[in-house]
Structures are given as C-alpha cells and as structure tokens.
C-alpha cells in the first residue's frame, strides 16, 4: 500500500478547476503559489478570506483559490471589493488582477480606493501586455516594445505603478518580480497584516505572448532579464522607479500608517448612534 500524498498547499486550491489555463513559462502560477504560501504561513481563516479578480489571465486566480471568490467584469474588481469590505469589514479582501484590468479600464477605481485608503489588498501581475486577448499594448507596455498592436514599437509612455499607487495614497507599496519568490511572499504576508489600501506589483513573465515578440522567447529568458535588470532599493523614491529594459527597481516603497476608510466609517456611525 502506498499512502496517497497530496501537496501541502493543495487545500488552498480548487482542484476541480485544474488544469489551469496559463501558458508554460507564465508567472501567474508563481504569484498564486506565493499568495497561498503567505496565507498558509499566517494561518488566515479561509472562511474570512475573499479573493476578487477582474478579467485577464490572472483573473482566473480567484477561481483557483478555495475561498469565497468572485470573478468580476473587466476593470471592476476593486469597486466590487469595496462593497464586500464595507458590508463585512471582518473579511480579508484581496484583489488579484492584471495591469490592463487594474490600470487601464479599472484605473479610476484603483486611484479612488487608494485615496480612501479602504482595506483592500491588491496584487497586480504586470506582464506588460494584454495576454488573454493575444498580446496587445497596455498601460505598462515599455516604450519601443513590440506587441500585436504596436508592430512598429510602442510610442506610449507606460505607467510607473508604484509611483501611481504611492501618489494616490496607498499605505503599503512594493514591487517584486516573479524571480523574488521569498521576498514576494514576505511582502504579501506584510500586506495582509496591515490595515488600509495596500499594493504589490509583481513583474511577471509572459514569454508565450509578450516575450516572443521581444526577443525573450522562453520563461527562462524573461527571468534572466529580471535577474539582470532588478535592483533592490528599499524605500527609494517611487517617482524614480520607472521600469526600463535596463533597470527594474524592486523593493518596498511605502509603508506608512493612516486611518483606513472602513474604520473611519464605522467610528463615525458609532458616534452618530450614541
């Protein structure tokens, strides 16, 4: 008799949803792994965890995680999560979505949720393009990068997401790549233990859709780029953290304390009722 062995983290996943839809070499699995690792290390009550995602490759993550989860319309996970968090502030509400979902179509919700400092934890998989629709230019596509809609090279300046998050009022802001798995996991743990609107950008490889048009045909080649270009500079100026082919500044950028929206709201309500 051979005892059946299951992966120690498998209880966090909906195995009925497997196999996942992600391409080989994609970074989304690493992000999902780091997230459930963080949840496991913190022993977060799965009954109190809600994972919300938008549309895109990483948008399927909500369905893969074995908690209450909602796969919203394109761009709206943060607005949906706002309703969840206010309706039950005891819930840990995490948004896992992509750069196009959170910063193009959903950009307005991101900056306003950060401004309110509502207790939503946002993990953004930044793969520099719209992977699910076949690799179009997006709000984080680097200058001169090739995508299916920038066949002559991108002429749009990309967002610097950590700068945007910091300027909008997020109380915790970090950037890692999928190469930095231990640091990313630690960062997710920190974010989950902290009040307010917290944000982690994860620079993630998309060899199949993005990399192959930009001389990085495999996941390994993309990871080699991250390894070569990444510089850890904790608490450096987010305004100077633009991602370029030569330089990806990673680390924690913001870690401040500020009253969160749901606390201010419930305190105000208590005041009114007494």
């Amino acid at each position: 008799m051979v005892a059946e062995i299951s992966h120690p983290l498998s209880k966090y996943l909906r195995e009925a949803m497997m196999p996942h839809i992600w391409c080989s070499g994609c970074g989304n699995g690493i992000i999902l792994n780091c997230f459930v690792q963080a949840v496991d290390e913190l022993q977060i009550d799965l009954k109190k965890l809600v994972v919300v995602s938008g549309i895109g490759c990483i948008g399927r993550a909500a369905g893969y995680i074995n908690t209450d989860s909602f796969h919203t319309t394109h761009g709206r996970p943060i607005a949906f999560a706002t309703g969840v968090k206010l309706a039950n502030p005891d819930l840990e509400v995490v948004v896992i979505s992509g750069d196009g979902d959170l910063f193009a179509i959903g950009g307005n919700h991101f900056i306003h949720a950060a401004r309110r400092n509502i207790g939503i934890k946002v993990i953004c998989a930044n793969n520099f393009n719209y992977g699910m629709t076949g690799g179009q230019q997006g709000p984080t596509t680097l200058l001169e990068a090739f995508t299916t809609t920038t066949p002559y090279g991108n002429i749009e300046h990309p967002f610097n997401l950590v700068h945007l998050a910091a300027a909008s009022g997020a109380t915790y802001v970090a950037r890692w790549t999928t190469l930095h798995v231990r640091r990313l996991t630690q960062s997710i743990k920190k974010m989950l233990q902290k009040e307010g609107f917290n944000f982690i950008e994860v620079v993630s490889p998309c060899p199949e859709i993005f990399g192959r048009r930009n001389r990085m045909r495999t996941g390994l080649q993309m990871m080699e780029w991250f390894k070569k270009a990444s510089i850890i500079e904790h608490f450096s100026d987010p305004a100077k953290a633009d991602i370029t082919p030569e330089r990806i500044v990673v680390g924690e950028f913001v870690d401040i304390e500020k009253p969160c929206y749901e606390k201010l709201l419930y305190d105000k309500m208590a005041q009114i009722l007494t």
Partner: peptide, 18 residues
C-alpha cells in the same frame, strides 16, 4: 463612488456579502 460603474459593482459586492 467614483462613478456609476463603481456604484453598481460595489452594490453587487455588498449583495454577495449579505
């Protein structure tokens, strides 16, 4: 909310939270 799209999305979130 910041717009009506956010408003209805938040309403659905609150509804799903009971």
């Amino acid at each position: 909310m910041e717009d009506e799209i956010g408003s209805i999305a938040a309403v659905i979130g609150a509804s799903y939270t009971g």
